[in-house]
Design a protein around this nucleic acid. Structure first.
Lengths: 249, 249
DNA sequence: CGCTCCTTTGATCAGAATCAAACAACGTGG
DNA sequence: CCACGTTGTTTGATTCTGATCAAAGGAGCG
C-alpha cells in the first residue's frame, strides 16, 4: 500500500469525526477529550489503494477526513459489489480493535486524507468511556439499518429506482455534513463504480443515466451531480413502504 | 401483537444466548453473572407477528430461545425484502436501549419462544461491563459482515448461486449452534419467504429448487432441507473471490 | 366441506446482461 | 507538441435470465 505518512500529532478539532460525534447526542466532555487526545498521524491514501484488507491483522484504524472510500467484495470471477460508501467522518478498521483483525476490505475512491491511530488506544478509550462504546454501537446499528435499505434496493428495485434511491440517499447524507446543497453535489465515482454499488451492468447504468439526463431528473457532468427535478427524483427513490403486514404480503 | 406472557423470571442458563456469548471469547464472570441476573419474562410469539416495529418506542429487547424470525422491509407496492434471518441465540430490539426506539422491523417466521427483558436494564449492564459492550459491538460488526455477503449475493449472483449460497450459509450457521448435521437441517421457511430473502420471484425460486432436487444437490420436503451433494452445493455457493485489486477490476 | 396457504405448471414478456466497438478526455514520454 | 496508452463514456445489436400473468393441484384445518 502506498501511503504517505505525515506529521505525528493528535486529531484535529476540525476533523469531521467530531461533527459526527456531536450529531449523536450529548457526550460527556471527558469522553470527547479522550478522543481528542488520541495520538496518531495524518496520512494520504491514493485513489485505488486498498488501505484495509479483510482478514489482515492491522494495528490501526482510520478516521476519514476528506475523500471517499468504499467497502467491497469480489466474486470469484472478478466482478465487484460495493457494499457501502465511506464518507468523511466515517471510521474504518475500528473493528480490528474489537476482534484483532480487519473484517472488511476498504478501497479509496478518491485520494484520501485520513487520521490513522492505534486500534488498541481506541479500545482503551472505549473501555474507559462506555458512552463512546455506546456511540460506536449506535453507529454500527445505523450502518445495519442503511444496509437493510440497500438490500431492499438490490433485491426489489428496478434499475431506475436503484439509481434514484442511491443518489437521493447520498444527497441526504452529504447535505447533513455540508457537502451538498439544493442543486447537487460532487460525485467522485465512475459509472462503473456506480454500477458495482447497485448490482447493475455498466452499459445499463449508462443508459439509465442518460434517460435521467434527457428527462431532466438529474445529470452528472465533470464529477458533479446536478439535481434537475428533486420531486421526481424523490418520487422514484421512495419505493419503500411503511412496513406493516408481513407474512403473506 | 398477540403474545403470551409467562412466568416472570431470569434468563435460563441453558438459553442459547449464553452459548453465543461464550463463543465470542472469554468474558469475565462478573459480566456473565450480570447477564444471568437480567430479569424479564419468557414470552411466546406466534408465527407471523411483528414483535418489533421500526420507529416504535419499545421498552424491552428479546433474546430468541427457539424459533426463527426475520428482519424485513416492504416496498411501497407491498413487495418484501427479507434483510436478515434471526435465529436462536440472537438478540432483537437491543438497539432501543441505545437509541430509544426500534430501528428494525422483526417478524416471527415460526412460533417463537423468547426472553423479554427491559432495554434499560440491558443498557445499565452494558455500561457496567464494557466487555459486554465490546461483545455487542463485535456482534454488530459480524452482522455487517454478513450483510456485505448478502449484498454480493443480491447484487452479483445468479438465482442458482443465490439459493446455493443462502442454504450453504444457513447450514454453516446452524451447525455451529447444533441445529444441523451433515445431512441437512429443519428449514421453517416457505418458498415465498426464501424468494423474498433472495430478491427472486416465487415462481423462479420454485423452478430452481426443483432443478436442485432433480440434480440431487438438495431437496426440501416437509420443512426439512436435505443435502444431496454437499460438494456441488458449496461449489455453487462459493462465488466469492479472495479480494485483491479493486478499482477497474 | 370449504377455506386458506403453499407448491407446481404453463405461457409470455421484459428488463437487464453481454458482446463488440467507437469515441472522448487526459496524462505522459518521446 | 504530438502520438500513444489508459481510463471512462457512449452506442448498437443480440441474448437470456428471471419477472409476470394465470390457473391448477395439494395439504392442513376449523
Amino acid at each position: 500500500m502506498t501511503v504517505k505518512k505525515r506529521s505525528q500529532r493528535v486529531l484535529s478539532h476540525h476533523s469531521p469525526i467530531f461533527r459526527r460525534l456531536k450529531d449523536l447526542g450529548p457526550i460527556d466532555v471527558d469522553a470527547l477529550n479522550a478522543v481528542a487526545s488520541l495520538s496518531g498521524h495524518e496520512i494520504e491514501i491514493p485513489r485505488g489503494a486498498d488501505f484495509v484488507t479483510r482478514g489482515t491483522v492491522i494495528s490501526h484504524a482510520f478516521a476519514i477526513e476528506t475523500g471517499w472510500a468504499m467497502r467491497y467484495l469480489l466474486t470469484r470471477d472478478g466482478r465487484r459489489q460495493i457494499t457501502s460508501l465511506v464518507l468523511p467522518g466515517d471510521l474504518v478498521g475500528y473493528e480490528s480493535a474489537l476482534v484483532g483483525r480487519a473484517a472488511h476490505t476498504v478501497c479509496a475512491l478518491t485520494n484520501l486524507k485520513a487520521f490513522a491511530f492505534d486500534a488498541s488506544d481506541l479500545l482503551d478509550i472505549l473501555y474507559a468511556h462506555p458512552s463512546l462504546m455506546r456511540i460506536l454501537a449506535w453507529r454500527q446499528d445505523s450502518e445495519i439499518t442503511a444496509m437493510d435499505e440497500s438490500s431492499l434496493r438490490l433485491g426489489r428495485f428496478s434499475a431506475e429506482q436503484r439509481l434514484a434511491h442511491f443518489f437521493a440517499d447520498l444527497w441526504r447524507r452529504l447535505r447533513r455534513v455540508g457537502h451538498a446543497d439544493d442543486r447537487g453535489f460532487d460525485l467522485p465515482m465512475t459509472q462503473s463504480e456506480i454500477s458495482d454499488a447497485l448490482g447493475l451492468s455498466l452499459v445499463h447504468t449508462n443508459r439509465r443515466l442518460q434517460e435521467f439526463r434527457r428527462d431532466g431528473v438529474l445529470a452528472i457532468d465533470n464529477g458533479r451531480l446536478r439535481i434537475g427535478d428533486a420531486g421526481r427524483l424523490l418520487e422514484l427513490a421512495s419505493g419503500r413502504g411503511a412496513g406493516a403486514h408481513a407474512l403473506g404480503a
